[in-house]
Amino acid sequence: MAPAPKTAAPKTAAPKASVPKTTRRTAQAADTRLHIVATSRRLFLANGYVRTTIEGIAAESGVAVQTVYNSVGNKAALLSAVLDSAAAGPNAPAQVLEFMRERTREAGDLQSLLVVLADWFTEVHQRTGAVLGVIAQAAAVDADVAKLEKARALQRLTRYHEAAAAVRARGGLTSGMSDEDAAAAIWSLGHPQAYRTLVDAAGWTPEAYREWILKALAAALA
Score class of each variant (00 low, 15 high):
residue 177 M to H: 14
residue 74 N to L: 12
residue 38 A to M: 04
residue 56 G to S: 00
residue 65 V to Y: 12
residue 187 W to S: 10
residue 183 A to P: 01
residue 99 F to W: 10
residue 63 V to I: 06
residue 100 M to P: 08
residue 86 A to W: 01
residue 178 S to L: 02
residue 69 Y to M: 04
residue 172 G to C: 03
residue 63 V to M: 01
residue 170 R to L: 11
residue 48 G to M: 02
residue 211 E to S: 10
residue 222 A to E: 06
residue 211 E to Q: 07
residue 95 Q to K: 08
residue 193 Q to K: 13
residue 27 A to C: 14
residue 67 T to A: 14
residue 86 A to D: 07
residue 174 T to Y: 13
residue 167 V to A: 09
residue 158 T to Y: 03
residue 144 D to H: 06
residue 152 R to W: 12
residue 31 D to V: 13
residue 168 R to L: 05
residue 84 D to G: 14
residue 204 W to H: 14
residue 213 I to L: 03
residue 92 A to T: 11
residue 110 L to R: 00
residue 108 G to H: 01
residue 139 A to P: 01
residue 195 Y to S: 02
residue 18 S to N: 15
residue 131 V to G: 04
residue 139 A to T: 07
residue 122 T to P: 04
residue 149 E to G: 05
residue 186 I to M: 13
residue 185 A to T: 05
residue 142 D to H: 08
residue 165 A to M: 12
residue 110 L to N: 02
residue 161 H to E: 03
residue 43 L to F: 15
residue 18 S to P: 07
residue 155 Q to L: 13
residue 28 Q to W: 02
residue 138 A to F: 00
residue 5 P to I: 10
residue 155 Q to K: 13
residue 19 V to G: 06
residue 142 D to A: 01
residue 117 L to A: 02
residue 77 A to T: 00
residue 38 A to N: 08
residue 185 A to C: 04
residue 4 A to I: 10
residue 27 A to Y: 08
residue 112 S to M: 03
residue 197 T to S: 12
residue 111 Q to K: 11
residue 122 T to W: 04
residue 119 D to Y: 10
residue 79 L to E: 04
residue 221 L to V: 03
residue 198 L to S: 09
residue 175 S to N: 08
residue 217 L to K: 00
